[in-house]
């Protein structure tokens, strides 16, 4: 099957700055894929290259088998991008904006049923005739998602779609996006809420300084770091013998990284031997955030 996204040796330079340094990435059709990385890692540059908003310095990008440069019309037909910023045309209401957007993709009145469906699914029905300027931040975010979907693209890129969005709307958006994914749409997500990526995405790429530093299934990435975190609140400082396990500390609260649950007992025994009282204790599963922090903090 043709991959939804194929990126080969893509580099992007802005003068002396290397925003992307030879990215290779393949995303299969139907995947729910997360693209993670700190600010300035190159995620938005990669998305802009896929959308054809900028040109790569070298390398090749394809969407559903269509080169984003040579076959740009077909490639853009196959892609819907939800931008990070709340940008909108102030002259139109939601329905007009969606119809114009679909029109850019050559879709006429026959697409109106689909426009109505996404308006309904995204809870915009009572705002369909409201000018974009008068919408709240959350409603504008929904309208932007609707805009990216107006031409029924098989591949959807969501660039920080839930930034500044309340919990209720976030859950509603994810339900809708999950439904689209179940219906066969490929979804590529960038987010700073790593728990979202962990819950939703089957595969994750982590970027740092224009390179992909990790690319694997979410499950495999979670296996890459010690399996458990032990949070302890002690009456005194942590014994020196346990310092190699330390991930994070704050006052007398310590987070220790354990490879196995069987390590708990030896740790507690060393604390007892040092005559330190355990005031509170919690055993936490390692999550994607731990993997992210671990990888990103490496030099």
């Amino acid at each position: 099957m043709i991959p939804a996204i194929k990126i080969e040796q893509v580099q992007k330079h802005y003068g002396a700055l290397q925003a992307l340094r030879g990215i290779d990435l393949t995303i299969e059709q139907g995947e729910f894929f997360a693209l993670l990385g700190p600010n300035g890692a190159g995620k938005s540059t990669l998305i802009n290259l896929l959308a054809g908003l900028i040109k790569p310095t070298s390398g090749r990008l394809a969407v559903m088998g269509f080169d984003v440069q040579a076959d740009y019309r077909q490639a853009r037909h196959a892609l819907g991008v939800v931008p990070q910023e709340l940008v909108f045309d102030p002259f139109f209401n939601v329905r007009e904006m969606l119809r114009f957007q679909a029109g850019y993709f050559g879709r006429g009145p026959e697409n109106d049923d689909w426009v109505d469906e996404i308006i309904e699914c995204l809870g915009l029905a009572d705002k369909a005739h409201t000018n974009m300027r008068r919408l709240s931040g959350g409603m504008k975010r929904r309208a932007l998602i609707a805009q990216a979907l107006a031409h029924r693209p098989p591949v959807i890129v969501l660039d920080e779609p839930t930034a500044g969005v309340d919990v209720e709307l976030r859950q509603m958006l994810w339900e809708f996006i999950k439904r689209l994914n179940r219906e066969g749409h490929t979804v590529i997500l960038t987010t700073h809420y790593l728990e979202e990526a962990e819950t939703l995405c089957s595969r994750v790429a982590m970027m740092k300084q224009g390179q992909i530093i990790a690319l694997d299934t979410t499950a495999n990435l979670l296996k890459k770091i010690p399996g458990k975190n032990l949070r302890l609140k002690l009456s005194a400082a942590l014994p020196e013998s346990l310092r190699p396990l330390l991930r994070h500390e704050e006052a007398f609260e310590y987070m220790l990284a354990l490879t196995d649950v069987t390590q708990v007992e030896p740790v507690l025994s060393q604390i007892r031997q040092a005559s330190i009282a355990v005031e509170d204790m919690q055993l936490i599963e390692a999550d994607l955030e731990d993997v992210f922090v671990d990888l990103v903090s490496k030099p």
């Binding site: 959308a51 853009r76 045309d89």
Partner: peptide, 14 residues
């Protein structure tokens, strides 16, 4: 200024 050019430039238009 409004950053809405991206809608046009990401559409299948030259």
């Amino acid at each position: 200024r409004q950053q809405t050019l991206t809608f046009l430039f990401s559409a299948p238009l030259s």
